[in-house]
Design a protein around this nucleic acid. Structure first.
Length: 512
RNA sequence: GCUCGCUUGGUGUAGCCCGGCCAAUCAUAUCGGCCUUUCGAGCCGAUGACGGGGGUUCAAAUCCCCCAGCGAGCACCA
């Protein structure tokens, strides 16, 4: 049996035990669907899988952010769970929220194919955080500290406590209320969680839970608050209150869980399961994938906006006609390993091509065209809309007195070229002379097939690509391609029709 | 400096927890072939990886130790 080829072995097995084959196939199918992401830890322990997206709305999303909804949303579907989108907008200053980003992010989540069951903004929940801080103070788990940051850092690194550490809870409580009332300025007072000042990992020692911020929050509803929680406190409280069971977050937050466990111990709560993943980087972009960097370039006018095709953002690939589903799939395939990963754009493109190809009508677009008079031949060309789908019909291109083809495609004098959908021509005396030859000449490899447009009635097109804008001329019928539709410019690649204007059309290049 | 983590082909990933079925999965990429009036799609094929060194074991990608490389935290950012 082992000497047989796999195919033969299978055939034999089918004869001998058909039920076994079916079983193997079912297993394989289940694996290909499910095994792209590893199982969530300890799912059995909870009634329902409850997860959260916790974006900082300090700007619209770049491509790396897609991983969060892609993975968490996929888990939600797999386990029939629940998903929260919680905006962790507790820093009105350094990572100041961008008021447009809240909706842009929810929109991006939807584009990726998911929807949050609930949406919360941390900046709406300050009173809740204050209440828990008060409770923590009563439990003796926190103290107010007026040491300058640098001074505390020095003590902490030496494993020495702040002189404020043993302050009575009443005093801490009074000072914390003064913080809440805005009686201190930035840097004058913080509330620290009492952990273990001699903990071998210095990152965990007596971390800050609340600090003063002078800058008002951009959301009007939150603009009066001056005493703001830091991520570790806010997120810990919210995860507990919203019943989060599994957390997936970046490796930069790998110590967060360890810090937050001190809090959970004070409150006698059970910490959720945690997974960490590394950074995602994307090849093929000149622009660094960073919210603040992209914002700067837009501000400076070097990018047209978040959806500029040169920007590594979700809005950009969306405008280029890449489906959210393709991005989600690509992100899922990256898995959740803790090492940094590179997303090859070619993988994303391959996924998208698979999704859009069947419906992408074909058009000719000539960049850098050279004009030639045409001698003889039919008056109209009728290439198919889609070579694999005859039922989608053909398109009509009037030939007229001459055609344009790309400079690179121009054959030498006396040489022939096949104008796709039209026929074979010979390049003679700066004209194309129709030869009437059969397609056989192409099949035998003698003649190359090229795309072309008529010199008259063509449509000027600006093709916006990640490498910059390219001007070209499309066949007349291109004006009928619907805006938002993804088409294929033959021999160039897929593009999304963006607009048809008076002076021409605009398309965004997706990928080859 | 202290602490934590990671390292499978060009890229990503599976396998590692519970050692043997792993001469290592799948995808993408590249190259080649078939088909084709596309440099697209489809089909077929090829290329290509367990960071290094020790150890345990009949047997190690998988367990242990050391080294190297990479990343992260030690912020009154998230």
């Amino acid at each position: 049996m082992n000497e047989l080829a796999p195919d033969e072995r299978r055939t034999r097995l089918e004869e001998l035990a058909p039920e076994l084959v079916a079983e193997l196939e079912a297993e394989a199918a289940a694996e290909s669907e499910e095994r792209t992401l590893s199982d969530l830890p300890n799912v059995e322990a909870y009634e329902q899988v409850r997860m959260r997206l916790a974006p900082n709305p300090n700007g619209p999303w770049h491509l790396g952010h897609a991983r969060m909804p892609a993975v968490i949303g996929t888990y939600k579907e797999r386990y029939d769970g629940w998903m929260l989108c919680r905006f962790d907008d507790t820093d009105p200053e350094t990572k100041r929220p961008d008021l447009d980003a809240y909706d842009a992010i929810l929109d991006a989540v939807e584009y990726l194919g998911f929807e949050a069951d609930e949406v919360l903004r941390a900046s709406d929940r300050l009173e809740t955080y204050y209440d828990h801080a008060r409770e923590l103070i009563e439990l003796g788990g926190a103290y107010t500290c007026d040491l300058p940051a640098a001074e505390f850092s020095e003590l902490k690194n030496a494993g020495e406590p702040s002189p404020n550490r043993e302050k009575p809870p009443e005093e801490t409580m009074a000072e914390f209320e003064a913080m809440v009332d805005g009686e201190y300025g930035a840097g004058e007072m913080v509330l620290r969680v009492k952990t273990d000042i001699e903990h071998k990992n210095p990152a965990l020692r007596d971390w800050v839970a609340f600090r003063m911020v002078d800058t008002p929050h951009p959301r009007e509803e939150a603009s009066e608050y001056r005493c703001w929680p830091l991520l570790d406190f806010q997120s810990a409280i919210d995860d507990q209150l919203t019943g989060i069971t599994q957390i997936v977050r970046g490796i930069d937050l790998q110590d967060s869980a360890k810090r937050q466990r001190f809090l959970y111990d004070y409150f006698d709560w059970v910490y959720p399961e945690v997974m960490h993943w590394g950074k995602v980087q994307v090849d093929a972009y000149d622009v660094k994938m960073s919210t603040s960097r992209i914002a700067e370039l837009i501000e400076a006018g070097e990018l047209d906006g978040w959806d500029d095709p040169r920007a590594p953002t979700i809005a950009s690939v969306r405008r280029r006609g890449i489906r959210g589903e393709a991005l989600t799939e690509a992100m899922i395939e990256l898995g959740t390993s803790t090492s940094d990963v590179d997303l090859a754009m070619s993988t994303l493109y391959a996924k998208n091509r698979e999704l859009v190809d069947d419906e992408a009508d074909r058009y000719f677009l000539v960049r850098d065209g050279v004009e030639r008079t045409i001698i003889g031949g039919p008056e109209t060309a009728t290439p198919p809309r889609h070579p694999n789908h005859e039922e989608q019909g053909t398109r009509e291109i009037p030939v007229g007195p001459g055609v344009l083809i790309e400079g690179e495609d121009l054959p030498g004098h006396g040489e022939r070229v096949w104008l796709k959908g039209l026929g074979c021509v010979r390049h003679t005396r700066d004209a194309f002379e129709f030869t009437g030859e059969d397609i056989e000449v192409v099949r035998e490899g003698e003649v190359d097939v090229v795309h072309w447009v008529p010199t008259e009635e063509n449509v000027p097109v600006t093709l916006r690509t990640p490498e910059g804008d390219v001007e070209g001329l499309a066949e007349p019928g291109f004006v009928d391609a619907d805006v938002d539709e993804v088409v294929q410019f033959e021999r160039i690649g897929y593009a999304r029709v963006d607009e048809h204007g008076e002076d021409g059309s605009v398309a965004y290049f997706a990928h080859p």
